[in-house]
């Protein structure tokens, strides 16, 4: 963990500050059919903006709906899923009202995705070089493309292009996938759904560095999904905190870590092992589980929140703030 710092500021918020919004998600909901007419609500009422050159983090525990958001943006949800939104604007178009054909034209070209499991994301039976050719076309033979691949540490891969993916390490493959996702068509938005969870800490740090480097040179925007606050702190400019399918807080990374507002955000920070020091005593853990939070009519966190009262369980708090930073909590609302 030596390379992981928790201090926000590794990337300065506002460095790419300009108000042009690349992605504007308004009131997104995702539901999965769960057989016999029943439905599971995975995401509801989610709104956020991603600006040019910004790394927007999405953090939340398992099952909070992070992947559902990514897949909804890519329009790659299974057939059992239904997506609703007031709007998902990207580059002046509403992604949800595009035809399938138009959407295929956007995938990989304007919005790219870095997968979570690099080891299984390339076809296992085709040599890596052949697969690079699928995506890069014949430009894979150009020296400048090869140079940029070599520059991100893919030397050894370029020397063994006739090998199958199984012959490479997870770190090599993840760098390769990032290269494919970002360099083939220079997309303006990159969705990264926990791209480093299967990698060890050092390799993870290298991959994060690579992502930030590419963000800087290409000026692309990144939606970075993770349940690891340490990683979020390292690379994000702004962060959205998910709980039970709802976005409960959005703040700049620095604000989130120094002045968390929502009780869930506070609990999340309190449960970070890296924040633990012997003087603090026991590592705080959250009581209860998130089960059923996605069905709650009120605040999804209410059942586990020490500050919750009857109103919290009945009524979902309104958005306090704007699209750049907001919190949804009755307690915070009352305090202001």
């Amino acid at each position: 963990m030596s390379e992981l710092t928790l201090e926000p500021g590794t990337s300065t918020p506002g460095r790419h500050a300009s108000d042009d919004v690349v992605l504007r998600v308004s009131d997104l909901a995702v539901r999965y059919a769960a057989g016999r007419g029943a439905a599971v609500t995975a995401v509801r009422g989610v709104s956020f903006d991603v600006r040019r050159g910004e790394v927007f983090g999405v953090v939340g525990e398992s099952g909070s709906g992070k992947s559902s958001i990514c897949n909804a943006l890519m329009r790659m949800l299974p057939n059992s899923a239904r997506v609703e939104a007031t709007g998902v604007e990207f580059g002046g178009r509403d992604l949800l009202s595009l035809t399938d054909k138009q959407m295929r034209g956007i995938r990989g070209t304007e919005i790219a995705l870095v997968p979570q499991r690099p080891m299984t994301s390339l076809s296992p039976t085709t040599p890596v070089g052949q697969q690079l050719r699928w995506y890069f076309g014949d430009s894979i033979d150009d020296s400048d493309v090869r140079d940029s691949l070599a520059r991100i540490g893919l030397h050894s891969v370029l020397g063994r292009l006739d090998n199958l993916p199984s012959r490479f390490s997870g770190g090599q493959l993840q760098r390769l996938l990032i290269a494919i996702a970002t360099l083939t068509n220079r997309p303006s938005l990159l969705l990264a759904d926990e791209p480093t969870t299967t990698l060890d800490a050092t390799v993870q740090a290298q991959v994060l560095k690579l992502l930030l480097g590419i963000r800087d040179t290409l000026g692309l925007s990144i939606v970075y999904v993770s349940h690891d606050l340490g990683v979020i702190a390292q690379i994000c400019d702004r962060v959205g905190v998910m709980y039970g399918g709802r976005l409960v807080e959005v703040a700049t990374t620095s604000d989130l870590f120094h002045r968390p507002q929502h009780p869930y955000t506070k609990a999340l920070l309190g449960a970070m092992p890296a924040r633990w020091t012997p003087e603090r005593g026991r590592l705080s853990t959250l009581r209860g589980t998130a089960a059923g939070a996605n069905r709650a009519t009120g605040c999804p966190f209410a059942p586990r929140c020490a500050l919750a009262d009857a109103r919290c369980t009945e009524e979902m708090p309104a958005v306090l703030g704007d699209r750049t930073s907001m919190v949804r909590c009755h307690r915070v609302e009352e305090a202001t």
Binding site: I106, R107, T120, S121, L122, S123, T125, Y135
Partner: peptide, 26 residues
């Protein structure tokens, strides 16, 4: 349903090519 099909789709590979190059092959 495998990851490598999802990645190819996410990269915008046309369905026909994806079937031929990846899905049927495996």
């Amino acid at each position: 349903s495998f990851d490598y099909v999802a990645f190819a789709t996410a990269m915008g590979m046309p369905q026909r090519q994806m079937m031929k190059r990846i899905a049927i092959r495996n």
